[in-house]
C-alpha cells in the first residue's frame, strides 16, 4: 500500500462493516431513559473512526489491527471507509469498552467518538 496520508487516498473502499459487535443484552434494563448514568447496558455503542488528512494509511491500519485485533484486510477496509465516507464504525459493543477503545485510538492521535447504535 502506498505510503500516503489517510486523506490522500482516492481508491474506492471495499464494503465493510465493523466485524466485532457484542450481543445486545436482554431488553428491559435501562431502555427508554435518557439518564447516561444508568449506563443502558442493553444499548450498544459504536466507535466511530474519523477521517483525517494527515495520518498515514499504514499507521491507521496498524493501529486498528493492534487495538482491535483485526486482520490487515479488515483494518484496511475500515480505514478506507473512514476516508471515503468521513467516518466509519470500527467497533460496536458495551459503552465502557467503546470509550476505552476511543482513548486507545486517541493515544496515537487518531480521532474517534462513541455514539449509541
Amino acid at each position: 500500500m502506498a505510503l500516503l496520508p489517510m486523506g490522500a487516498v482516492t481508491a474506492p473502499a471495499a464494503a465493510v462493516t465493523a466485524p466485532v459487535v457484542e450481543p445486545r443484552a436482554a431488553p428491559g434494563t435501562g431502555a427508554g431513559t435518557d439518564d447516561q448514568d444508568t449506563h443502558e447496558p442493553d444499548v450498544p455503542y459504536d466507535v466511530f473512526l474519523w477521517n483525517d488528512p494527515v495520518t498515514l494509511m499504514d499507521m491507521v491500519v496498524r493501529v486498528l489491527s493492534k487495538v482491535f485485533g483485526y486482520d490487515g484486510a479488515t483494518a484496511q477496509a475500515l480505514m478506507l471507509r473512514a476516508h471515503r465516507e468521513g467516518k466509519a464504525v470500527v467497533w460496536s459493543g458495551e459503552r465502557e469498552r467503546a470509550t476505552s477503545y476511543c482513548m486507545r485510538l486517541g493515544r496515537y492521535g487518531l480521532q474517534s467518538t462513541v455514539a449509541k447504535s
Binding site: T99, G106, V114, K116
Partner: peptide, 8 residues
C-alpha cells in the same frame, strides 16, 4: 486531542 468522545 481532548474533543468530546461521547456523541450521545
Amino acid at each position: 486531542l481532548l474533543a468530546q468522545l461521547d456523541e450521545s
